[in-house]
Design a protein around this nucleic acid. Structure first.
Lengths: 347, 347
DNA sequence: GCAAAGCTTGTTAGCGCTACCTTGAGCGGC
DNA sequence: GCCGCTCAAGGTAGCGCTAACAAGCTTTGC
């Protein structure tokens, strides 16, 4: 019994039991409770039982803030994506989430909206919360952001592209190689006027890489690049529809449209359906991301299968290796998870 | 100058500067630094400047673990959703994220996969991380989960449905009222054999509420409920396609299909397109969620606009009021954010 | 002119844990 | 029977920050 724990400071609203309460209940020292919970093989089985029973009886939930502060190790991973409500990131998030959860880690997710200054602010905030690792979708950062990362010593994985010189580690596919491969594929299928619809390249190195891959392929195919065939659009299905309209108006003889995004491709296809144009009869459509939607529309869309889930999973594995096993040899590694062309009906 | 801070314990890998380093640099006490950063109006402007300068000079990032531990207040909100890669949650997540970020909070997101036992485990984990508030999509929880929540004292918002008796607070629309409204709408449009495709009702009170609303409307319309018109399907576009097939095979005279989910509706529509069936000529289709996709397909789909973003935003506001302002009068409140029928071409 | 009140800064003692060191028991070897 | 060894448990001292109080100073009221 005894309630004589002197507490000259707050202990507000039902914040729950402390380790010392468990210790008292089990008749052992707090240190033994700590060991029983964190390194069970370093206490006798009998003690382990006693402690476990006491934990259950008083409904003890350990305080990770205190344990992280004391041990200088945390069990949270920070993630910054350009946009939370974009389907292409959710698969990667799921891969990350599934993997870190198995090691008892939690995910802190923030959204930077394609803005490096926002990203910098969020990195600061996450480091302030002492995340033990970071996942960034961007591969371009402010100098200040890189400095903070370096100073913090936290391992980092970059995800959106294969960077020349990663801040720390990177896991991705090559946007340039993927765009090159699909453009070549369209060329080999016989298309002679291949248009390219892309998101704005500003602040988006993925977009820039994709355009570069497209141009590289045109050259390899011996096709003259035509600025009227390259258009930048906004986001959303409406942007895809607009892309079709602009291309066909500017270059009526265009026979294929390669959309650098699943949503754009779907929007383009729907616009063709609306106009009653046969695809690929009037114009072929190819996409960049294999989302479920593109498999089920009519015609099913030729696209690239990108390893979105695997990127998350692998990123998590590498971070955990660094954090838990101190796998320093991973520093500097850039993992290319490749991609695959999925040939369907639309091209 | 001076490096004489006695440190009889670690201080490993570049973990960065501490508040006392800032204090030393600025020539003030650590307490003044704390006040300058957290309650700037309680220090003189001159001190504020000195401290701010010192912070910048040494690149100080406060340690939220320590500050939370000491103050017994944290700046993280926990969120548990059934599935991270489901588009209907991402809008709510965005609403939450946008709102809490303005108050400097971070979001910890986990996925429970429609399983209450998983949810319980995740609630424990988040409480262990001392989140200062919780957002749950489920409105049904294990007894153990509710006990932990109560013991922790953390404010909670439930999101997926309007519960009879919320654990704490709830923000949602009524699934039953929405399903009722759409079914009535279809009835008034003249459809006489309205089928209903739903996700599995097991462990999913949202699905159960929707079926209840559908049945209630049939009764109000004087239509006989027909078990062959109610089908449970899996997730994904393929499930929507399958729903059409099953309904039309079982009840060829069915003239409308109300899908309790945007993905199901899209799948159903694509299947009709594939079969060359006019919609709504052969069968009308209505959906539950107004996602961008349903606006852009042909025909555009009649659906319900649900306040997904607002739910996140409002949930965040209520949590923050409770956490920051101690707004105890919010305890027990259930906020109904309503919905809207969007009449388009498919029904 | 002096007490009461306000304002700014400093001092002390923890928040709930764990690193590190110590203690003491058990045990085999010669 | 004593030395060294291992192993389990405990004691102590922080991790980096802030609550609570105290101290020094200025302001205010009458």
């Amino acid at each position: 019994m005894s309630e004589d724990t002197k507490s000259p400071r707050r202990r507000i609203g039902g914040s729950g039991a402390r380790m010392r309460d468990v210790a008292q209940r089990a008749g052992v020292s707090p240190m033994t409770v700590s060991r029983a919970l964190n390194t069970p093989d370093r206490v006798s089985p009998e003690m382990r039982d006693r402690v476990e029973r006491a934990v259950k009886e008083i409904g003890y939930l350990p305080n990770h803030l205190a344990s992280s502060l004391s041990s200088n190790r945390s069990t949270t991973i920070g993630l910054i994506v350009p946009s939370i409500d974009n389907s292409i990131y959710t698969q990667t998030i799921k891969g990350l989430s599934d993997t870190i959860r198995r090691s008892g880690f939690q995910l802190m997710i923030s959204e930077c909206g394609y803005d490096p200054a926002e990203e910098e602010e969020l990195i600061a905030s996450l480091l302030t919360h002492r995340v033990s690792g970071l996942v960034l979708h961007n591969t371009a950062h402010t100098a200040q952001a890189e400095a903070m990362i370096r100073q913090s010593g936290a391992p980092v994985v970059e995800n959106g592209n294969l960077p020349e010189k990663p801040v720390d580690m990177a896991v991705s596919y090559s946007n340039q190689a993927a765009a090159y491969a699909m453009t070549m594929h369209l060329g080999r299928l016989g298309y002679r006027k291949i248009a390219f619809a892309s998101l704005a390249a500003l602040n988006n190195d993925r977009s820039r890489s994709r355009i570069a891959g497209y141009l590289e392929a045109l050259e390899a195919l011996g096709q003259e690049p035509d600025p009227r065939l390259i258009i930048e659009t906004g986001r959303g299905l409406a942007a895809g529809a607009e892309a079709v309209a602009r291309i066909v108006q500017g270059v009526p003889e265009a026979d294929a449209l390669f959309c650098a995004g699943d949503v754009l491709a779907a929007g383009a296809l729907f616009e063709c359906q609306r106009r009653g144009w046969p695809v690929p009869g009037r114009i072929a459509i190819a996409s960049f991301d294999d989302v479920e939607l593109l498999r089920h529309v009519t015609p099913a869309v030729t696209t690239l299968r990108l390893p979105r889930y695997d990127i998350g999973e692998r990123s998590a594995q590498m971070l955990l290796s660094r954090i838990i096993d101190g796998a320093d040899h991973l520093r500097g590694s850039v993992v290319d998870l490749k991609f695959e062309i999925i040939q369907r009906e639309s091209a």
